[in-house]
Design a protein around this nucleic acid. Structure first.
Lengths: 83, 83
DNA sequence: TTCTTCTGGTACATGATATGAACGAGATGG
DNA sequence: CCATCTCGTTCATATCATGTACCAGAAGAA
């Protein structure tokens, strides 16, 4: 059976800004802030701030938990990652 | 189709010591070094050393990638995590 | 003994997190 | 029009967590 993105409670993702929704999958794929910055043409520091904002809005403690969340929500797929 | 733990190339997991195999799923569940230490009754520094050793043996860059690896290998399951 | 594992340590570099702030766009109410 | 309010985007500084590179002793197995 296909892993349906869980509908989830009051849509937690709607709390994220468009830019934050761009950052989220990159974090979840294990990319660090420097990589995210160069992908989106923003500074590492800005990327850092977005990750913090995402983490706070989602109530998570660190990047690894962001990745686990994104997988559960179907935002990213394990096949999308490299390693 | 059930997500079979991929047999993987020359078994990468066999390179890990027994203790490292205990640490791996904890890292993959998003726990920090302090938490891992208190769970296994070792110091945060020792936990840190194990994580470094695991990462090097598996050729990964950070904890998030360790989590993605563990999921692909079926070492942990998304349902095992809290968030 | 020799080897491996487990444990803890020091010292430093890099990455992540907390917090603040500047700026502009858009809405609102006067 | 103007003041203000909210939000998004951007970047910064300071502190904390993680990562890197070693070292070394204890315990047990080969």
């Amino acid at each position: 059976m296909a892993q349906l993105p869980s509908p989830h409670r009051p849509n937690l993702l709607d709390q994220l800004s468009p830019r934050e929704r761009e950052i989220l999958p990159l974090v979840a794929q294990g990319k660090d802030n420097r990589e995210i910055g160069s992908i989106l043409f923003i500074s590492e520091k800005t990327a850092k701030n977005y990750v913090t904002s995402i983490r706070k809005k989602l109530g998570l403690k660190n990047r690894t938990q962001i990745a686990l969340f994104a997988l559960k929500e179907g935002i990213i797929n394990l096949d999308d990652t490299i390693d």
